[in-house]
Design a protein around this nucleic acid. Sequence first.
RNA 1: GGAGGGGUGCCAGAGCGGACGAAUGGAACGGUCUUGAAAACCGUCGAGCCUUCGGGUUCCGCGGGUUCGAAUCCCGCCCCCUCCGCCA
Length: 434
Amino acid sequence: MLDLRRIRSEPDAIRAGLSRRGADLALLDRVLELDERARAVGAEVDDLRNQVKTVSKEIGELFKAGQRDEAEARKAESKRLGDREKELAAAADGLQADIRDALLRIPNVPSDDAPDGASEADNVVLRTHGPGPDTFADHQRVPHWDIGTELGIIDGERAVKISGSMFTMYRGWGARLLRAMIGHSLDASADPANGAVWEEIRPPTLVKTDTMIGTGHLPKFEDEAYHVERDDLWTIPTAEVPLTSMAADEVLDWDTLPVRFTAYTSCFRREAGAAGRDTRGLLRSHEFDKVELMGYADGAEQAIALQEEILARSEQILQDFGLSYRILDLCAGDLGGSAARTWDIEAYAPGVGEWLEVSSVSWFADYQARRANVRWKRAGEKGTQVCHTVNGSAMGWPRTVAALLETHRQPDGSVAIPEVLQPRLGGATHIPAA
RNA sequence: GGAGGGGUGCCAGAGCGGACGAAUGGAACGGUCUUGAAAACCGUCGAGCCUUCGGGUUCCGCGGGUUCGAAUCCCGCCCCCUCCGCCA
């Protein structure tokens, strides 16, 4: 969420920023108004509490001095003050809750560097890597769902049978390929033998409501997540959720920043608004695998450097796999609610003839960290500061698998395995043709 | 799931309902001493909110209650530990 003090001190700048993403400004005005009232009531409550404490202390002293009658007499006064205090305190608490409620629903202010624009049509292509869309041969222009069925490595039908539509299943070479790809990504970032400095995490995939609030996935998007009602737990839509809340309510030592985490998890999305879209193949599923890179930083400079590092890592993986991709700079209007700046990576899938979003690399400034209450402090110095968070996928696997199968399909129907993955697949160079 | 024990500051660990934001010890930081270091000694040493910058206020797992007054009493919940049960 946004810093309330900043909303107070520079409301116009925030209004302008939020307008760039087309956000509703009514909540902002509401916060401003509630805050003014809350502070007035709060001051009064503090004052009354002070009086109650003072009188109570005096009563205690009177008792000790043996002046019982005098003490009893003053109880009434304290009681009256106390009752009034309780009344006002309840009002103050209500106001505070309302403020937080509104604050949680106000999106982040886009970075000045994020391009103007209202929708995905206005996103800016920063660069493209690898052969372009029209350079692919006919044997590569087969959709991955056909390749998957032909080679027996993706079994959509069985997945539908056991779980319903928009679930997928990998089999045989498909499952092994997926596992190899995940392993490659994880080892690239977390294996000390590669000089890796990212700590690998295997977090829980079921989390509490507060954890979902921390990253901004609640309260606004409850329809997008699966909720296990009986235990009031949510299935994570991305490892970003548990990773960002790992340091919730903690004060990190400045020396340890930036903190770098990578994690592989299943991700669950109800895809509430997407019923009927992309139901074939691997483009959109309720459950999918993803490797995430996530970091905590001490401020904008460090955070943006880390965001660039994550982007570079993700790009490297696509290069390792020999895939064509492009980098998009999301415009203010297409930014996720928590993000200040986002770069999407889209891999080209010649079979479906589309650029597929396989990664989203975002800088959240202090928006998430303030929600999750993650701060840092320099040893020996006074005061704490709110961290910045960044994260990005490396990668969202189903679409990466799709792009890989299509890109590396050979004229004979087999699929060439990228060299970096071969050691993980027993040295195999191809997924054999049917 | 059952029985018992416990949750206090960076850590350890006290705390008859009024003197407690909290003893004491350790760590850390600053200083004195020293050629330097250690030791010793002195001092500092949690976070949030509001502020007319004097200060005020909140927080002793979380929430509620009793009371003029709660870290201390009562109720509910959560978490941790031990034992039993169940289990990949």
